[in-house]
C-alpha cells in the first residue's frame, strides 16, 4: 500500500489556512492513485509528529505544501516526522532530490519529497491563477504579470523561487511583461505600477494559503484598497493601471497536480493521475520546449 501525506503549516488563528491543503488532498484522493491520502500540520491536527501513524501504508510519500526549501522543509518537518537522521540536509540549492527515511516511531518507509513551490509545474499554476482571476484562458497579450513573494526576511530561498518562476514564465513570451516583486525588499510590490507599461497587470502572490499577507498587507500595500476590510475591485484601478489581484496561488485547484508531480518524482506509482488531475482542474499544458 502507498499513502500520500500532504504536510502544511496550518494556523491556530486562521480557519482558512488549511482549506487549500484539504482541497488538494481531496482532488488527489479522487484519482485513486494512492490507497490513502491524509493531511498533517505544524499548527493543526494531526500534527507532523503524529500524522504518519494515521496511515496504514508501508510506503509513505510526504509532500510539503510549502513555497520553498528552507527552515520548514529542511529542519522542522524532517525532525518532527522523526526522519531527520536520514533526511535533514542543509541544502540551499534548488534542484531537489527526493530522500528516503525510516521514522523512529512507525515501521514505514518515508519518501520525503520536495516542496511544491519550487517544482517547475508551479509555473503552470501561476499562469492558471492568472487565467482564473481574469476569466480569460488566453490571457497574456497586452497583460503584465507579477509573481509576489515574501522576500528574504526569513529565507532567501523563498526569493529564489519567486524569481525562478517569473523567469520561466517570461521566457515563454505569453505575457508582455513579467516581474518578480516582494513584500519586504526591493523591488517592492508597493510600487507595482512603476514596473509595468501594460495597462493590465495580474498580481499572483506565491503563497500557499490566503491569510494576513495576501488578504490584508498586499492589497493595501499596492493601493488596491485603503482598508482591506472594505475589500477591493477585480480589476482595481491603481495609478491608471488595471490590477488583477488573484490571492494566494496555493488556492488554485491545479496545485494538486504539483503535489502529484512531487510524489511521482520520489517514485510513487501515480498511474495516469497527473493527467486526470489536469483534466479535473482545467490544467494548462506547458509548451513542448518547456
Amino acid at each position: 500500500m502507498q499513502a500520500l501525506v500532504i504536510v502544511a503549516h496550518g494556523s491556530h488563528l486562521n480557519p482558512d489556512s488549511s482549506t487549500p491543503t484539504y482541497r488538494h488532498a481531496d482532488t488527489v484522493r479522487e484519482t485513486g492513485a494512492f490507497d490513502e491520502v491524509v493531511t498533517g500540520f505544524w499548527k493543526e491536527e494531526p500534527h507532523f509528529r503524529e500524522v504518519l501513524r494515521t496511515v496504514e501504508s508501508d510506503e509513505v510519500y510526504v509532500v510539503p505544501l510549502f513555497i520553498s526549501e528552507g527552515y520548514f522543509t529542511e529542519e522542522v518537518i524532517p525532525r518532527e516526522l522523526r526522519v531527520d537522521d536520514d533526511v535533514g540536509l542543509d541544502d540551499p540549492d534548488p534542484g531537489w532530490e527526493p530522500r528516503r527515511g525510516a521514522p523512529e516511531d512507525v515501521d514505514k518507509s518515508v519518501h520525503y519529497c520536495g516542496p511544491v513551490g519550487t517544482h517547475d509545474a508551479m509555473s503552470d499554476v501561476i499562469v492558471q491563477r492568472a487565467e482564473s482571476v481574469t476569466g480569460d484562458t488566453d490571457v497574456g497579450d497586452g497583460f503584465g504579470l507579477t509573481v509576489v513573494g515574501h522576500g528574504t526576511e526569513r529565507n532567501e530561498n523563498s526569493a529564489k523561487a519567486i524569481e525562478y518562476h517569473a523567469d520561466r514564465i517570461r521566457e515563454r513570451g505569453r505575457f508582455d511583461e513579467v516581474k518578480a516583486l516582494f513584500m519586504d525588499e526591493d523591488p517592492e510590490v508597493d510600487d507595482v505600477t512603476d514596473f509595468f507599461e501594460s495597462d493590465d497587470v495580474v498580481v499572483v502572490p506565491l503563497f500557499i494559503a490566503d491569510g494576513y499577507h495576501t488578504q490584508e498587507d498586499i492589497p493595501e500595500d499596492m493601493g488596491l484598497t485603503d482598508d482591506y476590510r472594505k475589500g477591493w475591485e477585480t480589476p482595481g484601478e491603481v495609478d491608471g493601471h488595471h490590477i488583477w489581484y488573484s490571492g494566494a496561488v496555493g488556492t488554485e485547484d491545479l496545485m494538486a497536480d504539483v503535489v502529484l508531480e512531487r510524489a511521482a518524482e520520489a517514485g510513487a506509482d501515480v498511474g495516469d493521475a497527473i493527467e486526470t488531475v489536469r483534466e479535473l482542474t482545467g490544467g494548462v499544458r506547458p509548451p513542448a520546449d518547456d
Partner: peptide, 18 residues
C-alpha cells in the same frame, strides 16, 4: 485526529510519550 492510533498504542504498551 490520531486519537485512535495513540489509544491503541497505549493499550499495546507502546505509547511513545515525549
Amino acid at each position: 485526529p490520531a486519537t485512535v492510533e495513540n489509544w491503541h498504542r497505549e493499550r499495546e504498551g507502546d505509547l511513545d510519550v515525549s
